[in-house]
Simulated assay, not measured.
Amino acid sequence: MNTPELKQLKMAWIAAKESGDTQAQIRILQEYPAYQDELIDFIAGYQATGGTEAIDQTASLLPLTRRALNSALERVFEPQTAFATLAELRKSRNLNKVETARGLRLSVDVWNKFESGAIELVSLSQRQLEKLAQFFQVSIEQFSNALGGSQPALTMNRRQTREAASQAQQGPKKQSFAEAIARSTMSREDQQFWLD
Rank of each mutant, 00 (worst) to 15 (best):
F135E: 05
E99S: 10
D56S: 07
L89F: 07
N145T: 15
F83K: 03
A118G: 08
Q134T: 09
E130I: 11
A54H: 06
N112D: 14
W111T: 01
R159H: 15
A72I: 02
F143T: 04
L89D: 03
R66M: 12
V110A: 09
Q126G: 09
A48N: 15
N96I: 10
N96W: 03
T65S: 14
A87K: 08
A87Q: 10
L64K: 15
T100F: 01
N94F: 09
F143A: 03
E53K: 10
N157C: 06
S116H: 08
R93A: 09
L89W: 03
D109H: 01
N112W: 05
A82Y: 06
E78Y: 11
R159Q: 12
L86S: 00
F42E: 02
F83R: 03
Q142K: 14
Q57S: 13
L64E: 14
V76E: 01
A48L: 15
S123H: 04
W111S: 01
N157R: 08
A54W: 00
L147P: 08
T81M: 05
L73C: 10
T49M: 13
T81S: 04
R93P: 05
F135G: 03
A84R: 01
D41A: 14
A118M: 04
T49Y: 08
F135C: 00
R66L: 14
S150L: 05
V138L: 05
S144V: 14
T81G: 00
G149A: 02
E120T: 12
E74Y: 00
R67G: 11
I55N: 02
E88L: 04
D56M: 04
E99F: 07
Q142S: 13
R102M: 06
T58Y: 15
G103Q: 00
T81L: 04
D56V: 07
R93L: 03
R105H: 15
R93H: 11
Q47H: 11
N96P: 08
W111L: 11
A82V: 11
G149V: 02
A59C: 12
E115D: 10
Q142N: 14
N112P: 13
R159L: 09
T58W: 06
A82T: 13
P152Q: 05
E130V: 03
L124D: 02
R158D: 10
N112C: 12
E88G: 10
I119G: 03
A54T: 12
